[in-house]
Nucleic acid binder design. Structure first.
Lengths: 188, 188
DNA sequence: AGGTCCGATGTCAGCTTCTGACATCAGAGT
DNA sequence: ACTCTGATGTCAGAAGCTGACATCGGACCT
């Protein structure tokens, strides 16, 4: 046995999530999170840059996944098709996590600061996607626009997937939203 | 003469902008801003919800302008065409403010918290646009997608307008970006 | 075995952002 | 004159976050 209980970061993340759900994000202090995890406030800030970051640890993985899929798309694929490949690659990642996604989504939706953080993560995603497209030889502004449009599609599809009345799977919803975007821009 | 110097809010905003430019956003404290404006810290927070909000006071006006233009678009206009009308309506508002826009943009770009705040303002804009479209009888997800795509276009066009090497006017850049989006989605 | 070093955590002191509660007082309205 | 309002000041304090330094089990070396 080590000097401390193992997985400090995991314990902090779980304690934080519990408290955010129990009493809301604003009403839980870092001191409380640390206490529940059996650690100190200072240690919390060694594992997470700030109180919000607890909820966004997974976003780097999502980004890598999308970027790899864009990179791996057929050379002949049009920019938007490559983006579509990126979006669709994330389906499996969320496959069995709909309930968790919904809880997390509820916590974030209830708080303006968290919504801000989520938006910047998505912006970072869009930026990474645009970079990946440029790596495929796509020029700006086509690269930026395709990436931004792709993220918009992802958001819309994800929100629909989260929606309680909706039982279709994420992949399908992404496809539908892509088609909708195509229809809408063609008609404008 | 009143009990206090007039235009407290304006003085605070100017003092803040000066300091943000001089020493960066992070390195200026609210106490300093208030001191330069000849007021107290507490008064700053009566005029601005937080330290960031100083830079985003105008966004409500922008939003109203866009929404009105979407509402006023011809009944026969397709969703994306109505959005385009909204975007193009903002051209005059920025006509003679390119230098200010550039300074403000530089301050925001240099700081993650400010970028977060900017993103949420744009998201609010997208949401208002989507509402306006629904008011025209456009259903979801077409309304959300058109609005999000419109904001993406606006961002891309605005960034290009800010770009020092670029002398074209905002309206023209918006038109070009709309066409690019159309091309890109049609090809995907 | 003994010694040394490392890295995760603790402790403490401090700054900054932001809020609530209450005081002050010029000017407007009566 | 009297009151009332609203913008500002004053004060105290919670909470987020950071730097500096201490602690000490375990890994690694000799």
């Amino acid at each position: 046995m080590g000097r401390w209980e193992p997985d400090a970061q995991g314990r902090l993340a779980r304690a934080a999530m519990e408290l955010y759900i129990e009493r809301g994000f604003d009403s839980t202090s870092v001191a409380e999170i640390a206490k529940r995890a059996g650690l100190t406030e200072r240690t919390f800030f060694r594992h997470f840059a700030d109180k919000r970051e607890v909820l966004f640890g997974g976003s780097a993985g999502l980004q890598d996944l999308m970027v790899e899929a864009v990179r791996g798309a057929p050379k002949s694929a049009a920019p938007m098709a490559a983006v579509a490949a990126g979006l669709l690659a994330t389906g499996p990642l969320f496959q069995d996590r709909r309930e968790y996604a919904r809880q997390r989504h509820a916590v974030i939706a209830a708080n303006a600061e968290l919504r801000e953080r989520e938006l910047i993560k998505l912006a970072s995603l869009a930026s990474a996607l645009a970079d990946a497209l440029r790596g495929r030889g796509v020029n700006d502004p086509a690269a930026s626009l395709s990436a931004e449009a792709g993220i918009a599609v992802f958001r819309v599809a994800f929100d629909r997937w989260i929606d309680i009345s909706n039982k279709r799977d994420l992949t399908q919803l992404i496809r539908e939203s892509l088609d909708e975007l195509k229809a809408v821009t063609a008609a404008g």
